[in-house]
Design a protein around this nucleic acid. Sequence first.
DNA 1: CCCTATAAATGGAACGTTCCAATAAATCAA
DNA 2: TTGATTTATTGGAACGTTCCATTTATAGGG
Lengths: 347, 347
Amino acid sequence: MASRAKATILDIAREAGVSKSTVSLVLQGSGLIRPETAVKVRKAIEDVGYVYNRGAANLRKAHSNVIGMVINDLTNPFFAELAVGMERVFQAAGVVPFIANTAENPVRQEEVLKSMMEQGVAGLIVSPARGTTPGAFRRIEAAGVPVVFAMRRLPESRIPAIAPDNHRGAVLATEHLIRKGHRRLAFFGGSSDLVVYQERLGGFLEACETLGIPAADRLIVEGETSRKGGMACLETALAIPEPPTAALCFNDAVAFGVMLALRKRGLEAGTDFAVVGFDDVAEAEHYSPALTSVAVDTAGLGERAAHVMLKMIQSRTTRAEDHIGAVSLVVRESSGPDRNTQVGDAA
Amino acid sequence: MASRAKATILDIAREAGVSKSTVSLVLQGSGLIRPETAVKVRKAIEDVGYVYNRGAANLRKAHSNVIGMVINDLTNPFFAELAVGMERVFQAAGVVPFIANTAENPVRQEEVLKSMMEQGVAGLIVSPARGTTPGAFRRIEAAGVPVVFAMRRLPESRIPAIAPDNHRGAVLATEHLIRKGHRRLAFFGGSSDLVVYQERLGGFLEACETLGIPAADRLIVEGETSRKGGMACLETALAIPEPPTAALCFNDAVAFGVMLALRKRGLEAGTDFAVVGFDDVAEAEHYSPALTSVAVDTAGLGERAAHVMLKMIQSRTTRAEDHIGAVSLVVRESSGPDRNTQVGDAA
DNA sequence: CCCTATAAATGGAACGTTCCAATAAATCAA
DNA sequence: TTGATTTATTGGAACGTTCCATTTATAGGG
């Protein structure tokens, strides 16, 4: 079995009675080696329990086969789905993606990015944490390592971004609510330091404008992008004199929170108050009532991001075009018509 | 700015007017360097846009600061929570965990493990994919790299495992159902090639035994550990002549599926059929009706696993003790008393 | 039988770091 | 002053690969 000290190609060269160069060639699957020799070498590799040292190899080879995925919140199933989409593509390309979580913390993100760079990644796919400073990727760009943003983008950056058509999605959702008869609308959750927020809120406001909802009848409540945040939003909204009868939520997590808060008040989403989410996570379909949401084809965007990254690596460029993914509104039960009830009274 | 070719410590040595050794010392935060020199060096590092090459360093240093986390299903929020727990600990220890997903595929797992080994990880925390062959970790053990299993273990392996007390959890849950008056019980989901399954099913059967539920009144339905699997289980169960009135589910995903299938039939979990889940994911509390589940302190187990790993690395051993985490039953709405109704008829 | 062409295998230098042993400079005791 | 001690700094030899330029073996053509 394996000796204490790690085996190197020299050990296996000795074992197989060839030179280290031959072993190296076999390892790389070169056709220059006589098949019988290759077999002999592979046997020695097996016997000795050799493990390839990619670090040493990368010292000579220009670049590695690892790609870093830096994600701001792994516990959000939305991002996990994104990661899975990317993995599909990378696997087929023989590339191994390493994932790291930043937990929405820019400092942690800095550490993680640094670590990945030190590891010599060939490229980086990032969903930047909230509050990422503009300069955070300067070093990485300067080093010539390709970066693509997924789902989120940074305001000033020229790094290519793969994201859904947030504006359009919000317009679709808002029009849907208005067409259902709602006249006092709210936008719940998120915070304005996110570009995504501005895009989604922008779509909401634009639809209100075009379909004649006066500014006085629009309510905007910022909040955490979590169930808890959604609950808080609803409480805030129902506390005002003429509360809204429908809300577009920043994302599904917020929407779930809103529905939960409704239930706590004895109200039902869909009949007493219309709720629309964003992202259409798997759970949305299974919730009760099922959540109307803007589908963004998460896994598809992940695949797209991975493809863009591979292309960038291949053409050794650090530039690429943005990609805006198509969206669609999936209407389910949570967005019923306005019943013209004073929901505020029910509390 | 950064030149085309990557800067090395030699470049920054020249820039700062010192030797490469001095730069190396500064990089490692050695106290041997005069503070002013260190400042000078650090400035050069900044100016040149130098990025440390950990691969080269690992060639000399015995081991690296990266730990691999290999997880069988990232889209299950349960595992994401586990990952988050581990990350907390590793971050504090200055270690960067790289996560990779195997999507419950042993072949993929093999690739991922190989890649991590090649990358020179200091240790591996693994939640093994279903169908992992006994020999899958032989090479890794032989190489002296510490491995710990989290949440799942392998039948024959001597690799330390950190897992909840599955048996006890299942006993608690089953006793709860029986005490609620249920007499015909089912165990839904999972498959017998998982040790976890055997433990949970074992607890279920033991509790049935001690509390006098005859074998004829116990129904065991294997199935996918997903919502879809859960739905299928319920259908199967309600198709038999004397269907059960309550079920312990292999995990929460299965339980959610069961509840969904119930609703599709116009039945309600808790009143028409009692459902208990396992793992107590965050969602359980927020479901409607809220899901009774066995809480396993996921993040806590993640932390524990990380601690064990750090200790193993530090003491350069490949052995450690198993750790069985305490569990508790969280009773919510989904597990009401038996109403003695013939639920099978409702279809 | 020699020369050239092709195929297969090889030695050595390089990659960017660490670490040891050695040097140089500064401080101190006598 | 001298030698011993401490404090900072340094060159050089690894580490495990790749890749280029060679070498060696095999075959083919005249």
